[in-house]
Write a protein that binds this DNA or RNA. Sequence first.
DNA 1: GGCTCTATTGACATTTTTGTAGGTAACTCT
DNA 2: AGAGTTACCTACAAAAATGTCAATAGAGCC
Lengths: 198, 198
Amino acid sequence: MSIEPARRVRRSPEAARENILLSAERLLLERGPQGLKLVEVAQGAGVSHATVLHHFGSIDGVQTALAEAMIRQLVARVLEAERPDDPEAQLEGVGQVLFDAFESAGGARLAAWLELTGETRRLTLVREAVAEVISGPMAQKGVDPERATNLILVAVSLAMGVGLIGRSLAELVGRPPETTREAALAFLKSGLAAAMNR
Amino acid sequence: MSIEPARRVRRSPEAARENILLSAERLLLERGPQGLKLVEVAQGAGVSHATVLHHFGSIDGVQTALAEAMIRQLVARVLEAERPDDPEAQLEGVGQVLFDAFESAGGARLAAWLELTGETRRLTLVREAVAEVISGPMAQKGVDPERATNLILVAVSLAMGVGLIGRSLAELVGRPPETTREAALAFLKSGLAAAMNR
DNA sequence: GGCTCTATTGACATTTTTGTAGGTAACTCT
DNA sequence: AGAGTTACCTACAAAAATGTCAATAGAGCC
């Protein structure tokens, strides 16, 4: 019996990259930064590691591309909250969405990873998103930019912290995992309300 | 000229371990989890990498020990805030200290690292610290345990987020780096006040 | 069908990282 | 001073991870 050469799947460059990045993201999320190895990424994507190199040049290339892709996702997700025309409803939902974004799809873990890796330069997209919120719904509600900025800084930081350690923290003190998130959301909401009424 | 065998420093096992962990911590903080290599740790500690293995068995041993040591530090730092006998003063300073703990000495980065690595089991110490605060100053001020827990969850998460991305975030939107921290602290303080008065 | 283009791959080469073994030297105790 | 203990080192070995290269095989086009 002859050895069958494995049947190849040939993708478009874009599809190939996306496929690989998907595997990389999965790995990053469930194994941590340490688990981002060339061969594992390749395996998870169902291709040889040479293919990964072909598309990204090096393992750093993969990291960089992954970071960019994830950030794009994160920002897009947050900005979706701006859809409704009513600024009131927008702000109502903004906290919700913010928390979702950082909690699901590993947003917080992404940010933490970026920080730990020192790749904070890559965050231009985030700046733009923040600017958009400040000049958008915030301004419409008459919050002065200074205060609006502060609020956003706090809200994002909080979402980050909650997304990262919220669940474990709650479980650690014997509460259901969503407790942190709910408490934080309530806390944020009351703070927001206080800031708007003046 | 003869080759001088390098003069050896002989430490006690404890001192040796501490020396090595110090180097490891430095590396973790400035290079990220990826930078925690056996030889680099050894170099930074001024010993051969074989010595590191002698004391910790493996690179994982180093990681584990480091995590434990750092957590111990973090918790100790937070609990220091309980020194003053006056519960009012305690709560006044608790936010401050919490933020310090997570910001300086890489507390937030440690926590993030733990999360990303999935070593969250190791956090028993944290649970104890939280319990202590709840049954200590909080109870004395008459805050019911449920609400106290929620407050702590939020405060810790916030401190975490601020410690991790606070500075970059502020700079990202063109503010001085301490802005996030100050805003968060103010936000937290007003929230705390609200929670106490009822 | 035959041609071109290139995504894909296996096999090899290199570098990095981790781990092992045996001897040496610093310290303590008698 | 001599002996025992063990932290420490150098040198070597093994494994893991990254990267190179030439050949192969899908897919579109003539």
